[in-house]
Each structure stands twice: as structure tokens, then as C-alpha cells.
Design a protein around this nucleic acid. Sequence first.
DNA 1: GTCCAATAGTGATCCAGGTCACACAACTAC
DNA 2: GTAGTTGTGTGACCTGGATCACTATTGGAC
Lengths: 190, 190
Amino acid sequence: MEAKEILKAHVARFASLTDEQFEYFFSFFKRQGFKKGQVIISEGDAVNCEYFVISGCLKSFYVNDNLKMFILQFAMPTWWASDYNALYNDTKATISVDCITDTEVLSLTNDHRERLCAELHEAEHFFRWRTNRGYVAAQKRLLSFMNSNVKCRYEELLRLYPELYNIVPKNLIAAYLGVSRETLSRLYQA
Amino acid sequence: MEAKEILKAHVARFASLTDEQFEYFFSFFKRQGFKKGQVIISEGDAVNCEYFVISGCLKSFYVNDNLKMFILQFAMPTWWASDYNALYNDTKATISVDCITDTEVLSLTNDHRERLCAELHEAEHFFRWRTNRGYVAAQKRLLSFMNSNVKCRYEELLRLYPELYNIVPKNLIAAYLGVSRETLSRLYQA
DNA sequence: GTCCAATAGTGATCCAGGTCACACAACTAC
DNA sequence: GTAGTTGTGTGACCTGGATCACTATTGGAC
């Protein structure tokens, strides 16, 4: 499926745009390709864009003072990724984004999104619902952190996103679950 | 300050409504008062409303199978609370909301919010930004869970919301931080 | 006033998961 | 080919926080 079609189907889940409106909506996006390992947003950067994944897989992550990495999100096709704190508040990135595999995205600048939202009520409706769902998902993840042990969280992750198992190395899965790779490796020992 | 003024000042942070528009916006809200300990949303309920706090303090929380409670959020004046998963997806509540102190709120039904958003573009803009900020806050909390130990998280909480220290009992603070009350109590021991 | 429930502090013990160290594939790069 | 880099498993040991048990305090409700 073509990038435009993928975005169109995604937008249609939350908003009703006419074909003409969608053409306008789509005109603000820019298609970009990145290689495995390529860094899209690096800590300290100015952040202008958010990214809608067409194919491949991104990760957004934070690295603390001890160089330990924590993964906020894996972004598979039809997911969005950026440092939203930096993007919304026009500050330097504290979250980085890079490519786990070769990845195609549609990028949208902050200014373009706001212009779209201002000009097209239905676009604002779409972005409201996109974030609503992200907010609910973040709360669920927070609860699973407080409530569940590693094994439960790992099994839940694989249940929800089985495709990750084949694409994402175990050390990154561990960084997403917030445990050491050794602990993850030992889960199904003997 | 009157409830209407508090909401008006809050909305003005993210959206520009004329006085007339705000009157219309406000007409969808219903003022309600609750007593300390009173339950507003209980697990298993149908959820119709979200609540904007005027005075007092609410908590939203999840109770697991072992009857252990985890607090998702304290809601102080100008904060919003509900079971957003249930509210947005029209499912039964898994999150409960009750009153830590006597509390006044302005309640808004899901239908009324959607009607407001559909009829008034600027209302949709407001609710988009409100959730954007909630999403960013939820991600920050997730990172502090993965990255920081209890002591750091506790000190960060008190730094950001010092008023909680006097209003909220320690066992509830512990349930927010995701640790036992004993561990919280021992943080500043000898 | 007297009770009872809610809130807090603290000792003793246990365990999930962290840290360090080493082994060994598998995969580039040259 | 050979060498360096990634990803993965596993043993040994350590530690932060949980759990259980008991003791004060405080503050309504009556």
C-alpha cells in the first residue's frame, strides 16, 4: 500500500475528511527514508517534526546520566513518534528517536500541524483523538509498571505486539520493560 | 474565586473563547459537591462524566486482585479526573475516583464534550491541548518510574506539588509512588 | 468523656531483580 | 579469511523494597 493510502486509512479511524480535504491534509507531510541505526532526533536537538511510520520500526528513548537507556515507545507502521515534550513546548530534545530497522516515515512539522488544526476543524478532531488514545495507553502502561512483575509485562507486550519479538533484539525489549537484559534472559530459564 | 471564573482562567491558558462562547461552553458543565471519602466513580460503573476540580482533592486509582491500590493521579483545583479509558471507549470503569477531602467539581458528560467540540472549533482546540499536556506528563512519570528510585520520585513529587504533603496521607502518597507505606516511612530513617 | 478506625513508625526476614564477570555465537568490515 | 562489534545466556553475589508483626498516635462518632 502506498504511504498516502496508509495515512488515509489511519486518519479515517478517527475523523471524516473528504477526499479533497485529505489531499490538503496530506500535502503538509513529507516522505522520508532512514537506514537501520540512523538517528532522527538526538538529545539536545531542536525538535520540529513528528513522524508517522509507514514501514520499519523506530524507538524513542531516554538515556540517563549513567548511560542507561530506557525505551518509551517502539513505533511500528501507523504509529507516531517524536519527543512530544520538546515538540509541544519548543524546548531541546531530552528524548531521542532512531531506527531499529530501515524505516519510511511521513514527517509533519509542528507549525504545519497547528496550521492544519486551525484551518481544518476535522484535522483538529483527528489529532485530539490520536492523543486521547496515546494518553490512555500511557496510563495503562503506568499501571502495568506498578502492578505487574517483569514476566507479566513481557508476556503482555508479546501478546499485544507479537511482531516485536522477531524485529526487536532482546536487550531493547528489556530497556522497554525497564529491567536488565540478564533478568529478561533468565525469565524462562529451567 | 467563583467556579465559572476558575474554569474560564483555565480554558484561557490554551484557547481563546469570546465571552459569549465561554458562556455557551460553561452552560454544559454542572456544579457538584462531594464529601470527604465519597466515591464518584466505582469500578464496574458506567462512566459518563469527567470532572474539573474547583476546590478540594480527588484521587483516581486502580485496585488489583490482591486488593492493593495504585493511585494514577491526585486531582487538585484546575485538574481533571475520570476513568478516561472507560469514558472514551464507553466501557465499564476499571479505575475508581473518590474524594480525599470535601471537593467541589464541575462535571461534563462525554456527550456534552463531544457536542462542544463539534460545535465550537476552539473548544476542540482546548481539549486537544489539555490531553497533549496530560500525555506528556504521563510519559514523564513513566520515565521517572523506570529511571529513579523511591526517594527521588518522592522528592520530585513534593517539589512539583508541595501542597500534597499537607493534604494527602502518607499511605496514599506511597500508593502513588508504587511502594509500600513502610518503605516510604523508612526513607528518612536515621 | 470512651471507642474504634485511620495513620504512622520500626524491627526482622525474604526475594525479585541488579550488577559483575565470563562465554560464545552471529554479523559485518576489511 | 581475520577481527571487531552486537546480541545472548548464565553463574555468583548484592541490595532495595516487600511482607509480616507489633506499637504508638490521632481524630472523629457516639
